[in-house]
Structure formats: C-alpha cells, structure tokens
Simulated assay, not measured.
Amino acid sequence: MSAALTLTVYGTPAPQGSKTRNAYGAMYESSAKVKPWREAVKTAALDAIHHDEAWTALDGPVWLDMQFTLRRPKSHYRTGRNTGLLKATAPPYPTGKPDLDKLIRSTQDALKDAGVLSDDSIVASLGASKVYVLWGDALRTPGAVIKVWRLTDFLKEPSV
C-alpha cells in the first residue's frame, strides 16, 4: 500500500527540546535551528498537499515513518592525503545529539502547522531512525523522508 503522503525535506533536522525563559519571563526555544527546520518541513508539506484540492488534515489514526539524515562530524574523516575517507572507527549510525524523540517532536509539530495532521496526538504508530548522509538509502544531503499512512486504510485491505 502506498503512503497517503510522502515528503522529502531538505535542511538540517533540528530537535525541539527545552525552552528557556528570558529576563522578562517569556519562553522561547533554546535552539535557534528549530524554526528553520520546522519551516522546511512545513514548506515541503504545503507543496505536496497544494496539488490535492480535496486534501484535509488527517484526523483519524495514522502511522508515521520518519528517516532523518544527518551530516557526519568532521572528526569521522581522515586527514592529510586520505582527506574525505572515513576513519575505521567512525560509527555507522548517529548515537549522539540530536535526540531522536526531539527530532520527532519538532517534525510532528510542523506537520500539524502545515495541515497534514489535525493534531500530533492522532499518531497511533510511529517509526523513526537517524542515519548519516549517503548511508544505505539515506539522502545525499541532510534532511528527512517522511511517510504518513491512514491506519483505517489498512483495515480496508483484503487479507491474503
């Protein structure tokens, strides 16, 4: 079954995490990278649903799958004449920051803002991963591939 919506978002995935209070008591995001990431997700979503005049925000249970592609740190690469080659000790998957759950949070909020989801609470099933650029089927640049399925569509599928 094909996804109800598949998005490819380019940009640096940013976590939505802690908030900070300024001297006047107002709350704001601790990371300055969150706003550009959420805008990139929102723009990709709006571009995708713009072509479907009948699109309405999903309000039933959905299955959401996200693969975040991150840039490798410079410390993973060799230097000198081997510049650009990975060190043998370079880890295959990102296990440090940003936290996967915080990447999910910022992305789900952007999908809600774009009108893909009526609320992020409708996500009944979730798959998510972090990979490095050009690892397996990852994107060539930082970003994410996001797929959304209506779970009620699976109930309509004939059993095999």
Rank of each mutant, 00 (worst) to 15 (best):
A144G: 11
P61C: 07
L70N: 10
L86M: 09
T20N: 06
P94K: 10
H50I: 00
D101R: 05
S106K: 04
P73G: 09
T107Q: 05
L100M: 10
T89P: 02
D101F: 03
D99N: 09
Q16C: 09
Y24H: 05
G25E: 02
D109R: 09
K147A: 12
K156Y: 01
G17M: 10
A14I: 00
S121A: 02
F68A: 02
I122A: 00
R150D: 02
M27G: 02
T8A: 10
G136L: 07
L155C: 10
Y93V: 09
G84S: 09
Y28H: 00
R71H: 04
T20A: 06
D137R: 14
W63F: 13
Q67E: 15
L155K: 12
S121V: 01
I104Q: 01
E39C: 11
T79R: 13
I122M: 05
R21T: 11
D109T: 12
W63A: 15
A88L: 08
M27C: 00
A23I: 09
I122F: 05
A124H: 15
K130D: 13
T8Y: 07
Y10R: 15
P92Q: 13
S75F: 03
D52A: 11
A138R: 04
A26P: 00
A128N: 13
Y24R: 04
Q67S: 13
T6W: 02
F68W: 02
A144R: 10
I49L: 14
P98M: 03
L46P: 01
S121T: 04
G143P: 11
S75L: 04
T6G: 00
K130A: 13
P13Q: 03
A138H: 07
S118L: 10
T152E: 09
K97E: 14
L155G: 15
H76L: 03
L100I: 12
A23Q: 10
T141W: 07
K102V: 03
R21P: 04
F68R: 00
